[in-house]
Every structure is written in C-alpha cells, then in structure tokens.
Design a protein around this nucleic acid. Structure first.
Lengths: 242, 242
DNA sequence: TTATTTTATTAGGCAAGGCTAATTTATATA
DNA sequence: TATATAAATTAGCCTTGCCTAATAAAATAA
C-alpha cells in the first residue's frame, strides 16, 4: 500500500504545498485569494484548480470554512515539504550552496518523483531534523517534529539550545557567524540577557563566552539541544558557514 | 556571457538530447520519424517542435540533410547530457541505487535548472569521467572525453583496463560481479583469450586471476585505465556492486 | 517511368494551466 | 437596512505540447 496512489502534477503539488503552509501559519480560513497571493497567480486559476483537487479528494472546500487538506492531501503535502527540506540540506551541506540559494533549487528538486528517493536522501544526509532555515523535516511516515524553532533572543536564561538556521541571510551576518565559529548544529547556552539593550551573553560550546546584540539574537534560529531520543539522533555536526 | 541565454522547457531539452544522441550514433540523417521513435511520440508533434527549435536557432533542418544541432543547440544538449550523467553517478554512488534504477530518476533531475548546479555536483562527486553505464561525462566547458568504452571481450591480450559500467543489469550478473569483487573503477588486465569459446582470463588487481565466459566479457564495459592527465584524475574508487 | 509505399507536413482538436473581463455573492460600512 | 467594496465564480481565450486524419512529397519497386 503506497501513500500516493497516483502521481500529482507539479502544479498540483505546488497548490497542496501552499495550502499546507497557509494552514500551518494558523490561517482561520484559507481562501482562493490567499492561495493566489502565495502562488502569485490569478484567483480564477485557483478556483479551477481547487475544483480539480476536490475531485481528486485531496482537499475539502466549502465557502464557509475555506480550503482544507484531506488526509490524503496532507500526506502528499508533507511529502513535498519533506523532499524540499531534504534537498535544501543536501544543497547546503554537500554542494555548499549558501542559505539563500537553496530554496529556489529545492523548489524544482521537490518535484522529482521516485518512491525511494526521499528516504535514501534522508539516510545519506544522516536523518537531519531541520532544514537550513530551521524548519523541521517531516519523517518518512509523514510525522513532523513538533519541536519548533525560536530565535535566540527568546531562549530563557540558563537554557541550552542548538543552532538550526538563520533568518537573515545577508553575507555580513553569515560572515559574522563564521567569525564566531557558529554554524548549524552549534550548541549555545544563553547565559544572560542584558535588559538595557537586549544584548545576550552566550556560551558557545567550543569557544567560550561572547556577547551578541539583540539584532544578532533575533536572527539566529535555534531549537532545544536534544530530543527525546537523545542527541545522537541529531545529525548536524557544526560546520562552517560560508 | 552565459552559455545559455534563455532557458529551455523540459520538452525542448528532451528533443535536443535525443537529437544529440541520434547524431552521436552516427545516423546519416536525423529525420522527424527517428526522433518520434526515440521520444515515443507522433511525427506530427515532432514537426511542430522542430519548427520551434529552428526559430530558436537551436537546430538546422533541411529535408535533404535532416536535423542538425547548431553550436548553441549542441552546447545545451551537452549540458543536459552532463547533468544526466552526473546525477546518475550521484544516485549510484551516494544514494546507492542500482545501475538500472538511476536512468529514470536522472531523466527528471537533468531538467533542474541552476547555473552552478552541475559544476557543484561534479566537484562533490570528485569530477567523475564516466557515468555508471560507462558513458563519458561532458566537462563544464562542454567537452566530451573521446575515450570510448568498449566491452571487456574487445580488449587486446595483455592490455589493462578499468571497469566503467555494465551492459546487462540483471541481478544475477551484478551479484556475480560482487562475488568477483569487481565494481566501477576496478582495474583489470586481460591476460588471455581462449579461442575455443571466447572465454577470457583476467587478472584483477586485488584478487588474482580468474576465467570468465564470453557472455561475461561481453557485458562488462571498460575503458583505458589511465588518461593523459594521470590516473589520479579518475574518480571512481572500486566499490561494491549492489 | 510509373505505381506503390513510406515519410513529412498541414489542419484541426484536446487537456492542462494559466489569463482577463464580467458577473455573482459576501462582507463591511454608512 | 441599503450600499459600497471585496471576494469568488463563470465565461471565454491563450499557449504548450501532444494527438488524429488528411494531404503532399519522397523514396522505392515494378
């Protein structure tokens, strides 16, 4: 029994993905207009496609409740998201693309169809939990880690965390990170927050204490340092940021 | 100045690739019919597309001479072939797909567009010279190694060669190879050919001498063991065949 | 050379997935 | 509530890339 009975077109996959993301952002109601904005196309086109997706039982659509993914639609959406994020990790870690370049390429790679590809890639990458933007990667069974990233500035004093990504991808920020020897997977303990300007004193496992600005702390995405299964399941080893 | 001024559709890329391959197989004349056979579509569709490709100056087409790639068309075709073969190496070597699975997936991956992707992948893979079917991988500048593969049975007595692929991808053949500890990159010296039944005595660098059948020797693709630049440029390290 | 067969081309259509413009239906505001 | 505004939907059209059927042009055989 396969998760996906018959294959989707790229366009259908993009609609499902966008509906998933809109739903995830806690939208009350996912409307044709919001979808058209996300896809940068015309609401009339969206209405056409919604009909098709309803026929295929991938979504439900009632004017009152807006659009919702069915179980089947959700599974496919999660698979697309999984592929996208795995490819992003690949592009960043193996092909040494920078954070801001990976998304666009992954938009294409996520539509490559092969039943084993995502799982093999996952294994090859060491079962990463997060993509380079700090978003969790759905598992093969379609489960999404519910451990959510936050920004460093929201970590409580005394708590440890692990770098999973960045918000700002400017080269000045990335270079600063490099200088501080902070990369994906780096473990950081938030020692103290300075009330005056929001500066944060952090302790980097490898390199001792440093103080960073609020602006810095607002742009570094972090997650709890270890998961229920123990940290040997975290794949990221600290790496240089290009 | 980029090699490709404006992007091709997947379909256009497939036509260019097929025209390239037909041309490479020494066809006297590449006709709409031969293209339609290769693409498994209708000659009428081919004629439509040929017009489009002529307009884009990617091919020349005269009923007398048939279809020919222009310089521009050739560059694009070589890029597609390059991408295809690099992805095949990736799938085989990194994701551990088997020989016969990689082609179909590479058919999709070859259409992923990004100016740096092929070159980064090439580097990541260690600048392989051959794909898993023993076909040479065009370089970044669009040069194709003119070192052509042959089958083991055509190697002269006393000559050394290197395994670059297989013709038969049946699991029985692949398992036999595994048993003999022969994989991509394995160096083999052809010691002697037995006239009686075409059997071949080979010496495998790692494992001494063995005799293999003509059928075996007809299905193992090999290339000269070292290139002008020296063998340190060959990327393949012997690996197990799955 | 003429007849036959094969190949190429044209004409007209189809499905997918967009678009614009017009219309209907909701929602908000006066 | 009546009206203005915004959103959703419908209708009709476009492009891409394919198809079939019909016709034209070649190539081959008689």
């Amino acid at each position: 029994m396969s998760i996906i009975s018959h294959s989707q077109t790229n366009s259908e996959e993009n609609y499902l993905k966008v509906i998933y993301h809109l739903g995830n952002e806690g939208k009350t109601k996912i409307s044709p207009t919001s979808i058209s904005e996300a896809l940068n196309n015309n609401p009339a086109s969206v209405v056409d496609m919604l009909k098709k997706l309803v026929d295929k039982k991938l979504i439900q659509y009632e004017k009152s409740k807006g659009v919702r993914l069915t179980g089947k639609g959700m599974k496919i959406a999660l698979l697309i998201v999984r592929r996208h994020r795995l490819w992003e990790v690949f592009l960043l870690e193996k092909l040494e693309y920078s954070w801001d370049e990976v998304h666009e390429i992954a938009e294409q790679l996520e539509h490559v169809h092969n039943p084993e590809l995502a799982d093999r890639l996952d294994k090859f990458l060491g079962f990463p939990q997060y993509d380079p933007h700090g978003d969790p990667i759905p598992t093969a069974s379609g489960e999404m880690a519910d451990i959510h990233k936050t920004i460093l500035s929201e970590v409580a004093e005394g708590k440890a965390c692990q770098v999973v990504g960045v918000k700002d991808t400017s080269s000045s920020f990335l270079q600063y990170l490099k200088k501080l020897d902070i990369g994906i997977g780096t473990k950081i303990t938030l020692v103290e927050k300075i009330p005056f300007d929001g500066s944060v004193i952090i302790s980097i496992k490898s390199g001792g204490k440093t103080t960073v600005s609020k602006m810095f702390a607002d742009n570094l995405l972090v997650a709890p340092p270890s998961l229920p299964q123990g940290e040997e399941h975290l794949h990221y080893s600290p790496r240089k940021i290009k």
